[in-house]
Amino acid sequence: MIFLDAAATTPVRREVLAAMWPHLSGEFGNPSSHHSLGEAAAAALADARAAAARVLGCRPGEVVFTSGGTEADNLAVKGIALARRAADPRLDRVAISAVEHPAVTESARYLERVHGFAVDVIPVDRHGQVTEDAIAAALRPETAVVSVMYANNEVGTVQPVARLAGLAAAAGVPLHTDAVQAAGWLPLDAKALGVAALSVSGHKLGAPKGCGALVVRGRTRLEPLVHGGGQERGRRSGTGNVAAAVALATALTLAAQDQAGRAARVAALRDGFIAAVLEGVPGAVLTGHPAERLPSVASFCFPGTSGESVLLELERRGVVCSSGSACAAGSDEPSPVLVALGIPAAVAQTAVRFSFDAAITAAELDQAAAAVRGAVGSVRSLGA
């Protein structure tokens, strides 16, 4: 089997398992307890926070450990918007790009539905990028927070986050970026990006599912979503998951090692795969930005097919991939991301996404490209 669905999840790395194992067994203390076991757990949690901060370009105290990217996105969008409106009731709008992950989109819609916020959706160009003019038009004196993802989970388009964050800052609006897919492939320095908040998730990096973090920089106001014992400096209550924090910090540290070299190698393999598919499959359409895209993602529409039928045929041929976001699996609706790019709904339903991990080889992608040619041809011949 050739696994080309790394944007959905990745296997846990052995180094990560080794680092977290002691905190699942002998060193099991509660980091809030004031005895030797608790103090050892607190020290491990502090070390993990410091290690994560080194990769994320922030101070340790700016790292909030969460249960994953979805919680981090919810905490950023809801938490910043609610806190800023509490301080200034005039701040009753949120702005999000048209290609956000559902964790961001649904958080904004919750604020609209339950708390009366207005939601401004920032359009993207045909490659899925937010232009500076588009974000400038969306920023209003009443905007409490704006969220633009670093790299898209379906088509791989990378946003000019630093430039967009600069425009937002000049307008006095904090910008949050969902960096879940960017982690491991692009620099994650929150200070250099100029963002107020940044989300990451461990299971895209070789850590277990269920661990993530939100960077909340400086004086950014944040209303907690989970109340209780005041852990995470009052921003996210609940007994600290030391093993998960250690796993995330270890995975982030490993992913940062030779990141540029790894990204360049995989990007070259990706480009070869894209060329092979476009050459071998008549009518295939590459989605997302042709150049400013994640090294690890190649996404296509295959008009005249059903995306689900192509997926089934590819798996029969030994290639595992997806039709887009794993979070929208089972939906019969066309992808909102592809529709936002101007792709007709009928064509959007033929989408297939191939996403690679760092261990991918040229031979595997050659084999996968041949499988794509055969699978699409077979589906078209059957009229499926």
Rank of each mutant, 00 (worst) to 15 (best):
R113P: 00
N153W: 00
H35Y: 15
C327E: 14
G283W: 01
G116W: 12
R85Q: 13
H23P: 02
A264W: 04
L37C: 03
G202R: 03
V173R: 08
I96Q: 02
A40S: 13
L56K: 12
T220P: 06
L175N: 04
F28Y: 14
D47G: 12
S299I: 03
S323T: 13
L214T: 03
V216M: 10
P290Q: 11
E232W: 05
V226W: 11
A245W: 04
K204R: 15
E364Y: 02
L365A: 05
K204M: 11
T350M: 08
T66Q: 01
L382N: 02
D120A: 10
G261M: 06
A264D: 15
A369V: 10
Y150G: 00
A43V: 08
G156L: 09
S97L: 01
G324F: 05
W185I: 11
A182P: 09
E279H: 14
A44R: 14
C301N: 15
A18S: 11
S237W: 07
D5R: 15
V319K: 13
A196L: 01
E232H: 05
A192L: 09
P344W: 03
D73P: 00
A52E: 06
A369D: 08
F302G: 12
T253N: 08
G238K: 04
T305N: 05
A48V: 11
E27N: 12
G307Q: 10
A213H: 09
T220M: 10
R217D: 08
L269G: 05
